Simulated scan of single mutants.
Amino acid sequence: MRVQAFMFYGCAVFFLVTDVVYWLWSKDWTGTTALALSVGLAGLIGFYIHFTIRRLEKANAGPLYEDDPEGEIAQAAGEVGFFSPHSWWPLFVALGAASVSLGFVFGWWLVVFGVAATLMSCVGLVFEYYRGHFQH
């Protein structure tokens, strides 16, 4: 992951050079400010990734498998997570969110209905595979 950190550092340097050239040629404060914010954002993301990599390397007592030149693809294998093979709940979440969006156009009563539908369908999505007292 160290490569990703240096990619963001490179983006920050590119935006910095672009920002200086843009300011010298245009004297436009809005574009200069937007590019300066881009410098800060790219630098912030690069710093965060670099800091996280250093912390993970200390916890693993060595470089990560992405940074190992002799690394194998099998080192990256592992459980990614559980994904529902068939679930209707995302459809209901989307319908509730669409009701909220349409409520801003047609009337506030539809917003209230859409928020209630979205919250109920989010609860259904979260607890779909929950086993215990609230099993459905």
Rank of each mutant, 00 (worst) to 15 (best):
M1A: 10
R2K: 15
A5D: 06
F6V: 15
M7A: 14
M7D: 08
M7Q: 10
Y9F: 14
G10C: 11
C11G: 09
C11Y: 11
V13F: 12
F14L: 15
F14S: 11
F15K: 03
V17R: 04
D19L: 11
V21P: 01
V21L: 13
W23Y: 14
W25L: 10
K27S: 07
D28Y: 00
W29N: 10
T30I: 15
T30C: 04
T30Q: 09
G31T: 10
T32L: 02
T33S: 12
A34G: 02
A34L: 14
A36R: 04
L37N: 01
L37G: 00
S38E: 06
L41V: 13
L41K: 00
A42W: 02
G43A: 15
L44C: 08
G46L: 04
F47C: 05
Y48N: 06
I49W: 05
H50W: 15
T52P: 02
I53V: 14
I53R: 15
R54T: 08
R54Y: 05
R54A: 09
E57P: 00
K58E: 08
K58N: 07
A59K: 15
A59E: 11
N60W: 06
N60S: 13
N60M: 15
A61S: 11
P63L: 12
P63I: 14
L64K: 00
Y65S: 09
E66D: 10
E66G: 00
D67C: 03
D67A: 13
D67F: 02
D68W: 04
D68T: 02
D68F: 00
P69I: 11
E70P: 01
G71Q: 05
E72D: 13
I73V: 11
I73K: 12
A74D: 08
A74G: 06
Q75G: 00
Q75Y: 06
Q75V: 02
A76N: 09
A76S: 11
E79Y: 13
V80G: 06
G81N: 09
F83G: 06
F83K: 15
S84E: 11
S84A: 13
P85I: 14
P85Q: 11
P85G: 08
P85L: 13
W88F: 11
W89R: 10
L91P: 00
L91D: 00
L95Q: 04
L95H: 03
G96H: 07
A98E: 04
S99V: 15
S99Y: 03
V100T: 02
S101E: 04
S101H: 06
G103E: 01
F104A: 05
W109H: 09
V112M: 08
V112E: 01
V112F: 07
V112Q: 02
F113Y: 14
G114W: 09
V115T: 15
T118N: 04
T118H: 02
L119P: 01
S121L: 06
S121P: 03
S121Y: 05
C122Y: 02
L125S: 07
V126E: 01
F127Q: 09
F127K: 13
E128P: 01
Y130K: 13
R131C: 01
R131L: 10
R131P: 02
R131T: 12
G132K: 04
F134G: 03
F134N: 13
Q135M: 07
Q135T: 12
H136P: 11
H136N: 12
